[in-house]
Design a protein around this nucleic acid. Structure first.
Length: 842
RNA sequence: GGGCGUUUAGCUCAGUUGGCUAGAGCACUGCCCUUACAAGGCAGGGGUCGGGGGUUCGAGUCCCUCAACGCCCACCA
């Protein structure tokens, strides 16, 4: 074909040019006529669109894209969808801040509502429906920003296969799977103590917790024995004395042997409490005896459950002490004390209680300041409280050993890349201590698709769940009536109420293979892509996304959702610190792409080893940019001779020697990619490429220009090797390789076959020829460099001492060597390798 | 408290099953406008492979131990 090689090729504008061409040509469109064994399916992580764009967003996605492109070139039809995770609390928070609004479900819908141009302070309250409309609107905008970034970076996604976790199809899939869990008994509802965020007013799950080190104060508080003796406990939460249900010590603790089975009374409140024994009580912690409250921490919950203690909860869902005096405080004095802390927040009540205990003489010694871990919701700002509440759960093995074992076994069958990541999964599953809490008392999410019967007194019967017809999904039980009822019966005796909760984000995103593969509405497609080949994701969401996806797949399909889990590393800022918004060291990708180009940013990302933490490194991006420019220039040279030369013409030993080395490079890059080690594949290709430009191109140059030797062999070898290099680099540098490919080839390099050993069949020679010739050339260059003279300076005498084998190799390429060295003759000597060079006078 | 990972040139990192004088790029030094490329090319200096033991003919590579850093988990009285 005619070649159209620009005079001064450059990188500018390649991203836009090729993104729109790929889009119009449908280059990455998934061909669903292929069968499962011909398909490589990727369970793409749906990014949280309300989150900020940062380099972490780029890193893993580019790595996965390189793998996708490799698989596509090696003959697989790649199923590469893109999803948006827009459902859930992060979006609500962003909408609240962006518009200055709060959701108040008690307000009526205002069809004319338009958010103020500037977020008002204080925020205005709007109805649930208005709030959700704002969420939808804003996420659509956020998604556009992400899509633009992905396109600029050259992700080879099939954009016709995209979804959002809040769209109708995702909601239907999510509700359908939930109802299937419910029918099989894998989902259940229960009124129990849950970890509760008082600001967001929602329950949170074990996987969303994080410990933060917070200051606390030990109070040494006296309880009273019947004989008047004081029994001291140490607590950081004296405000919970009123909710105390027992004291506990270790069964083997000699100090308290005589007390087990007896009772004490609480200070100030005078409530009679048993002293009990439990192994979890630690003799060397505090005084060795602790108060059990309902509930100060998760240990309290364990004790309360295992020792079958009464419930005396005082902290309500708003985070405050209940206003009415609890009925278990019977004494007048006690009731008067409680009134002083009624309605307070825990930290206020704590101070008050310390004062009151001090006054009554029940606080002994100085307060002791300590720093201790406190449980927080990972997105929250205040310590979690434990409150009693009705919630929905999915069984996850936290309470059933058989299920836990099964899930551990599935984790072992999964191929983890890198393999040590599997340990994180194992530890998480082994450490689960309760079922998966999936209900959230929030607004922007997939509704829990059930209603409850109301009995004759209008009390909900949570054992009589009403479920929707599958055809009606997705449903919103707060605005739709269940089958067999009419809207008028909502809230009426003998009628129904809808569940007002939504599901946690993970309860929907745990179904990404089913959503992307259309399990719900396209079983033919689903059978072609499921189970998927890879799940690429970050290490921090193994306990959430990976685990929950595996769990749902086990329930629904009794198999692993994918063959491989490829886990990327953390992104660190240029100073190797973890990037976080609060430190303010977040590096955003757009300016970097503008400065260095997409190829450079991709090169940086693909240099990060699988699973290895990687710092943002502008130096590496510069190298990537240089590599891309080099490809343009070297291609201009290799293709600048106008002819299409037949590989059959490659006869010169040094050409065949070069191809021998390249053939080996192809083998190594292929092997690396097969193991998902894109970084090694890049490294191997790159190292070889620089040798090709530095040495081979110099050695072949004269012959290529027709200054002696087999010109056609040079041209053919240049073209074949360039074709191979372009394809080796295509997964990493998709724009520049496509650009060069377009100069002389039809179609996209990204649909061209991955280089195979067959292409070199009968064309390779002795790899030593190029290697040893390059060594001599380097020696000549060194001589010229030492003499501070130009590389064009002629060589009047060249004396090479080498082994017989190397001399033979050198003789095979002598003409090319002399041309590159600017010499006229070489003299050889048998012996240890040495090169003597005499230069012509300048 | 437990687990995982990292520790190789000033910086960022490679070093696959132990094997010839430990590699790359950046940075640094010197040279070169050479007809693919001067926002380039060529050449060069630079490391007791975190510390300490051990196995081996031979260890950056295997074992033990210690340390620093990072991450994950843990019942916070």
């Amino acid at each position: 074909m005619t070649r159209n090689i620009p005079e001064k090729p450059g990188l500018e504008g390649l991203e836009e040019k090729w993104d729109s061409r790929w889009e119009s040509d449908g280059t990455f469109r998934f061909d669903r006529s292929k069968t499962r064994d011909e398909i490589f399916a990727i369970d793409t992580p749906p990014p949280t669109v309300s989150g900020s764009l940062h380099m972490g967003s780029v890193f893993g996605y580019v790595q996965t894209d390189s793998v996708a492109r490799y698989r596509r070139m090696s003959g697989k039809e790649v199923f590469y969808p893109m999803g948006w995770d827009d459902n859930g609390l992060p979006t609500e928070r962003r909408v609240q801040n962006f518009f200055g609004v709060r959701c108040d479900p008690s307000l009526p819908y205002d069809p004319d509502f338009i958010p103020p141009p500037e977020p008002p302070e204080p925020p205005i309250s709007i109805s649930r429906r208005n709030f959700i409309a704002l969420c939808h609107g804003l996420t659509e905008e956020d998604e556009k920003v992400f899509e633009h970034l992905w396109r600029t970076l050259g992700l080879s996604v099939d954009w016709t296969q995209s979804y959002a976790t809040i769209d109708d199809h995702s909601q239907r899939t999510s509700q359908k799977a939930f109802l299937a869990n419910l029918e099989r008994g894998e989902a259940y509802t229960q009124d129990a103590p849950v970890l509760w965020d008082v600001d967001f007013k929602t329950a949170v799950a074990q996987a969303e917790l994080e410990d933060r080190e917070r200051p606390g104060t030990y109070h040494r508080v006296a309880f009273h024995r019947p004989d008047g003796e004081k029994l001291f406990i140490e607590t950081t939460r004296p405000e919970l004395v009123c909710s105390c249900v027992a004291l506990v010590a270790h069964p083997d603790d000699d100090r308290y042997q005589g007390l087990f089975g007896s009772t004490v009374t609480s200070p100030l409140f005078g409530v009679e409490l048993p002293v009990v024994a439990h192994e979890l009580a630690e003799p060397d912690k505090g005084s060795g005896i602790a108060m059990i409250c309902t509930w100060g921490d998760t240990t309290d919950v364990t004790w309360w459950r295992e020792l079958d203690l009464p419930t005396r909860a005082v902290i309500k869902q708003n985070g405050c002490f209940q206003t009415e005096v609890p009925e278990w405080i019977e004494s007048e004095a006690g009731r008067a004390v409680y009134e002083q802390i009624a309605g307070l927040y825990p930290n206020q009540a704590r101070k008050k209680m310390a004062e009151l205990l001090e006054e009554s003489g029940d606080l002994q010694g100085e307060l002791k300041q300590v720093s201790h871990p406190v449980k927080f919701y990972e997105k929250g700002d205040r310590p979690l409280e434990i409150v009693s509440s009705r919630q929905w759960y999915i069984r996850n093995g936290g309470r059933e050993d058989d299920l836990r074992k099964k899930l551990l076994e599935l984790g072992e069958r999964l191929d983890w890349v890198p393999d040590f990541m599997g340990v994180r999964y194992k530890h998480w599953v082994e450490g689960l201590n309760g079922d998966w809490l999936i209900s959230r008392q929030r607004f922007f999410g997939v509704p829990i698709p059930v209603w409850y019967h109301l009995d004759d007194e209008g009390i909900p019967d949570y054992d009589r769940v009403i479920i929707p017809d599958e055809a009606s999904l997705p449903v919103d039980p707060t605005s739709q009536a269940p089958p067999g009822f009419s809207e008028e019966q909502r809230g009426q005796r003998g009628g129904f109420i809808g569940d007002r909760d939504i599901m946690d984000t993970w309860a929907t995103s745990s179904l990404t293979p089913q959503i992307a593969g259309h399990w719900d509405d396209d079983p033919d497609l689903f059978a072609r892509v499921f189970p998927m080949d890879i799940r690429p994701q970050g290490p921090e969401i193994i306990r959430t996304w990976l685990f929950s996806t595996l769990l749902r797949s086990y329930y629904e399909h009794d198999q692993l959702p994918w063959g491989h889990a490829t886990i990327n590393g953390w992104i660190l800022d240029p100073d190797r610190k973890k990037m976080s918004k609060s430190i303010g060291n977040v590096v955003t990708p757009i300016p970097l792409i503008e400065e260095y180009g997409s190829e450079a940013v991709r090169y940086w990302a693909c240099n990060g080893r699988p699973g290895t933490d990687t710092a943002v490194d502008f130096g590496v991006m510069k190298i990537g940019r240089r590599l891309a420019v080099k490809i343009l220039n070297a291609s201009r040279f290799a293709l600048g001779f106008g002819d299409d030369a037949d590989p059959e013409l490659i006869t010169e030993p040094i050409d065949r020697s070069m191809l021998a080395g390249l053939s080996d490079v192809v083998d190594r890059a292929t092997a690396a990619f097969e193991k998902f080690d894109y970084a090694r594949a890049l490294e191997v290709a790159e190292a070889s490429f620089w040798t090709w430009t530095d040495d081979y191109l110099e050695l072949v140059k004269g012959r290529a220009y027709g200054e002696g030797g087999d010109t056609a062999s040079a041209h053919a070898a240049l073209q074949l090797s360039l074709s191979v290099y372009l394809r080796l680099f295509a997964p990493f540098l998709p724009f520049v390789t496509e650009e060069v490919w377009s100069w002389w080839r039809e179609g996209s390099v990204h649909r061209a076959p991955w280089p195979s050993p067959d292409e070199f069949a009968g064309l390779t020679g002795d790899a030593r020829v190029l290697a040893v010739t390059s060594e001599v050339l380097t020696a000549v260059r060194r001589a010229k460099s030492d003499a501070r003279t130009s590389m064009r300076t002629g060589v009047s005498s060249l004396q090479v001492t080498a082994s017989r084998k190397d001399i033979e190799a050198l003789q095979a390429a002598e003409r090319d060597l002399l041309e590159a060295a600017r010499g006229s003759a070489v003299a050889y000597d048998d012996g240890e390798f040495a090169v003597a060079v005499v230069l012509e006078d300048a």
